[in-house]
Amino acid sequence: MPISPSGLSGQLSSVPRTRQLIEQLQLQPHPEGGWYREVFRSTAEVMPRDGRPARSALTSIYFLLEATQHSRWHRVLSDEVWVHLEGESLDLWTWDAASSDLRSITLGPVSAATEPQHVVSAGLWQAAKPQGGIAGYALLACMVGPGFDFSDFQMMQPRGSEARQIAREHPTLASLA
């Protein structure tokens, strides 16, 4: 879903490395926040067992969040692998509305406090935000299998029942809706 740079996120960052990455990687604003570009879509197809039509076996994007941006609460009907490439560490939350199970992972360079990749299981709500250090951005790769399709993507409605539940149970994360 290409979106012109004048849409959603609007202006290029004033951080030189962020601006360079947006231009060099040809990133576009993403509806959930941040910047992205699909870099791979498998020509092989698979049939999901949940009734969806055939999907590419795998898709991959670059995904960049500036220090002031976040990935809004959303869910995808396929498993998604997040891989930290460079920049700030990133807080990634997953939430199962049915069980109220909230989990948090910090993606970043390998250390005792961070992991370089994490898998978000299909159907879980997810949101992310850079930790806000001096780099001013977090660059990630996200792979989805079966491959990503916008018809499998749902953003949390800011005044919907899930957003109200998040606000009650985890008020500090309500602003990510």
Rank of each mutant, 00 (worst) to 15 (best):
H70G: 03
Y62M: 04
G51N: 12
H74Y: 04
Q69H: 05
A67Q: 06
R52F: 14
L58F: 13
L65R: 02
H70D: 01
L58P: 09
S71H: 03
L85K: 05
I61D: 02
W82S: 00
W82D: 00
V76P: 06
S78R: 09
V81S: 05
T68Q: 14
S60R: 10
T68I: 08
R55E: 11
L64R: 02
R49F: 05
L65K: 01
A67F: 00
L77V: 10
E86W: 01
A57H: 07
A54I: 02
H84F: 03
D50N: 15
R75Q: 14
W73V: 09
T59D: 06
H74G: 12
H70S: 13
L58S: 12
G51A: 08
F63L: 06
H70R: 11
A67I: 01
E86A: 05
E86F: 00
R55W: 11
S71T: 04
T59L: 11
V83W: 08
E86I: 00
L64I: 04
S78I: 09
A57L: 15
Y62W: 13
A54D: 07
H70Y: 12
T59G: 05
A67W: 00
A54H: 13
A67V: 04
A67L: 00
R55Y: 09
E86D: 04
Q69W: 07
H74P: 10
P53V: 04
R55S: 07
S78P: 09
A54S: 13
S71Q: 02
D79Y: 04
S56M: 08
G87N: 01
R52P: 10
H74K: 09
R75A: 07
R52H: 14
L58A: 14
